[in-house]
Design a protein around this nucleic acid. Structure first.
Length: 102
DNA sequence: TCCCCGGCTTGAG
DNA sequence: CCTCAAGCCGGGG
């Protein structure tokens, strides 16, 4: 049977390197509208050795949804930068890397 | 079932 | 660009 998690993972696996998407829009693509927060919750419980690009998911303001001093922030940012994504001084990601909602 | 809380969003200042 | 207030929805006690 296909669980909501399955749909989420499938949608997430289609996000290409060098691009980022919001929790809300990803939820929509997965056929789970309105579940942005649930997406965050679910991603946070992925195993450390997962192949899924969880780091390509940020909030609608194009910023990492973790306090800038946290470990999570650092690892996510480093992963994104290693894919060529650039951050402004304020920590926002350039629009050219953004997968925007229709 | 009620209540609280969160890797969210949107809209106002 | 920033902060705040509301809305929102599922998870867990």
């Amino acid at each position: 049977m296909t669980t909501p998690e399955d749909k989420l993972y499938l949608a997430l696996s289609t996000i290409p390197a060098g691009k980022v998407i919001s929790y809300g829009y990803l939820a929509e693509l997965a056929g789970l509208p309105g579940r942005a927060r649930w997406v965050g919750k679910t991603l946070s419980s992925l195993p450390d050795d997962t192949q899924l690009p969880w780091h390509r998911v940020v909030n609608a303001s194009r910023r990492i949804s973790f306090p800038a001093d946290s470990e999570g922030y650092k690892t996510q940012r480093q992963r994104l930068e290693s894919e060529g994504i650039e951050f402004s001084a304020a920590g926002t990601i350039s629009k050219s890397n953004w997968i925007k909602p229709l």
